[in-house]
């Protein structure tokens, strides 16, 4: 659906996007991650032909963004960052304007408006002025606008920016539902969201691709270490000697809790789950144990690892 080859964009002598090569297959939901200023929006603007690349090119739905802008734009439903809308139009007026502008015929436009308003839960505000809508509704109007011309690909730039937690959840559910029908490229910096909706994440930092794989494999590959939290009744010394006797487990910290309990944080290396070994060892000693939990690395850890990796090398 999207295929970029050595896509570059420079602003005032600085490379905002530096030879980007990535692809999005039909039907995929891809999360486009990166810190602020990494070049996410610039890339998306190039893919929607709002900006032209400085060098390199890309095809969207088989059409070149350099030569076939109109066909690309017909293929893409784009929701820009911060969802700019005309505040002096009613929701229906706006959607009709956008639908007609994107080439729908009058009758068809009416039918499609009803569909997208239903899909984005806009029916109750259809007669309201856009300027009077809350941020959550405005976001959904933007999404309805992106969907109206039956695009094959949805490109959403920070769709949950500025929403409250409840609205974020609603937006996420909606995007997930859309992901079943459309190919979706969604940029965001909220990681928990991406983990839940996307099949694959592309991480970009300072204009370069740093990773491109499924969230799970990314976490697995990047964060081999696992952290274990144990709460038991024993002295620090005893625990230290016990841990020294085990392989692939390291003691990372000990903290005493009220009531002679001890909170122990352990690090395991290797992919094997060490919880059973540790539990058996503690049981053999006969120490009271009240918690043994593993904290698996999250996408956040992986993201920080990926994004900060090159800096360590300097």
């Amino acid at each position: 659906m999207i295929e970029t080859s050595a896509l570059c964009k420079s602003y005032y002598g600085r490379l905002a996007v530096d030879r980007l090569d990535f692809s999005v297959e039909k039907g995929e939901t891809v999360g486009f991650l990166g810190p602020n200023g990494a070049g996410k929006s610039t890339t998306l603007k190039m893919l929607t032909c709002f900006l032209a690349p400085s060098s390199g090119t890309a095809t969207v739905g088989g059409h070149s963004i350099r030569e076939d802008a109109l066909k690309v734009q017909q293929t893409v439903g784009y929701m820009p960052e911060n969802v700019p809308l005309y505040p002096d139009m009613r929701v229906t007026e706006y959607l009709e304007f956008r639908g007609r502008l994107k080439g729908l015929r009058h009758r068809d436009c009416r039918r499609r408006m009803a569909e997208v308003m239903d899909l984005c839960d806009l029916t109750e505000v259809s007669r309201k002025m856009i300027g009077a809508l809350s941020k959550g509704f405005r976001q959904r109007v933007g999404l309805a606008d992106a969907l109206i011309h039956r695009p094959e690909l949805l490109i959403l730039d920070e769709p949950t920016n500025g929403l409250d937690p409840n609205q974020i959840r609603q937006a996420r559910d909606l995007i997930r539902r859309l992901g079943e029908e459309y190919t979706v490229l969604v940029s965001t910096h909220i990681l928990s969201e991406v983990e839940k909706i996307s099949d694959r994440v592309v991480i970009i930092d300072r204009g370069k691709i740093r990773a491109s794989e499924s969230p799970k494999s990314l976490v697995r590959r990047r964060c081999q270490q696992e952290e274990l939290r144990v709460e038991l009744k024993a002295t620090e010394k005893q625990v230290e000697t016990l841990i020294e006797g085990l392989s692939k487990v390291e003691l990372s910290s000990c903290e005493s809790l009220p009531g002679e309990w001890l909170e122990v944080t352990l690090r395991t290396t290797g992919s094997k789950d060490q919880r059973e070994t540790i539990a058996t060892a503690i049981q053999e000693k006969g120490w009271p144990l009240r918690e043994l939990a593993s904290r698996t690395a999250s996408l956040e850890d992986a993201f920080l690892e990926v994004v900060s990796a090159p800096r360590k090398n300097h």
Partner: peptide, 10 residues
Amino acid sequence: GTIEGLFTAP
């Protein structure tokens, strides 16, 4: 910013 919506429409 509505110019972005305008110029990304076909």
